[in-house]
Amino acid sequence: MIRFRLKELMADKGFKEERRITMDEVSKETGIHRTTLSKIANQRGYVTNTNVLDQLCTYFGVPIGEVAEHLPEPADESDSSR
């Protein structure tokens, strides 16, 4: 599964700049709709496109590996009974 680190990036940027970064600000600066940002931040397994990822990388000044990370899927418990 891919996990997006949007909330962490917003917190890090806010800490560095000594201010609060809001979803509305990220939306205005990147052109990414507020609803899309909310889904990226809160919805497990949300799928987005490379343009959105590129805009987030540019806004936060980080490589793609800082925006998203791969997490292995948890083992299915029904498979362990074999």
Rank of each mutant, 00 (worst) to 15 (best):
D76Q: 15
V62R: 01
I32G: 09
D79G: 01
F4Y: 15
V52I: 15
N51Q: 11
G65T: 09
L71T: 12
E73Q: 06
D24Q: 12
E25G: 02
P74K: 08
I64P: 02
I40K: 00
T58S: 11
D54Q: 14
N42G: 12
L9C: 11
Y46Q: 01
Q43W: 07
E77C: 06
R82Y: 02
S80A: 05
I2N: 10
T50V: 11
V62G: 02
I64F: 08
Y59H: 13
I21G: 01
E29Y: 00
V62S: 03
E69I: 14
F60S: 06
L6G: 05
K16T: 05
L37E: 03
T22Y: 02
R82N: 02
M23D: 03
D54V: 02
A68Y: 09
Q43R: 11
Y46V: 03
I2R: 14
K13I: 07
E25P: 00
K39A: 06
D24S: 09
N42W: 08
T35V: 13
Y59W: 07
I2K: 15
K39G: 00
D76P: 00
H33Y: 09
N51I: 11
F60C: 00
G31R: 07
H33N: 10
E73G: 12
T48M: 02
Y59E: 08
F15P: 00
I32R: 09
E18M: 14
P74V: 04
P74E: 08
D76M: 07
I32T: 06
Y46H: 06
G65Q: 08
K39C: 04
E69W: 03
R44N: 06
T35E: 14
E69F: 02
G61M: 03
R44H: 12
L53G: 02
V67P: 04
M10H: 08
A41E: 05
F60E: 07
E18G: 03
S38M: 04
S38T: 05
F60W: 08
E77I: 11
I40N: 00
Y46E: 00
K13S: 14
L37M: 04
R3K: 15
G65N: 10
T30E: 07
L56Y: 10
V47R: 13
S80D: 00
K39Y: 09
N42P: 01
E73L: 15
E73A: 10
T35M: 13
E18N: 15
A68M: 14
V52A: 13
T50S: 10
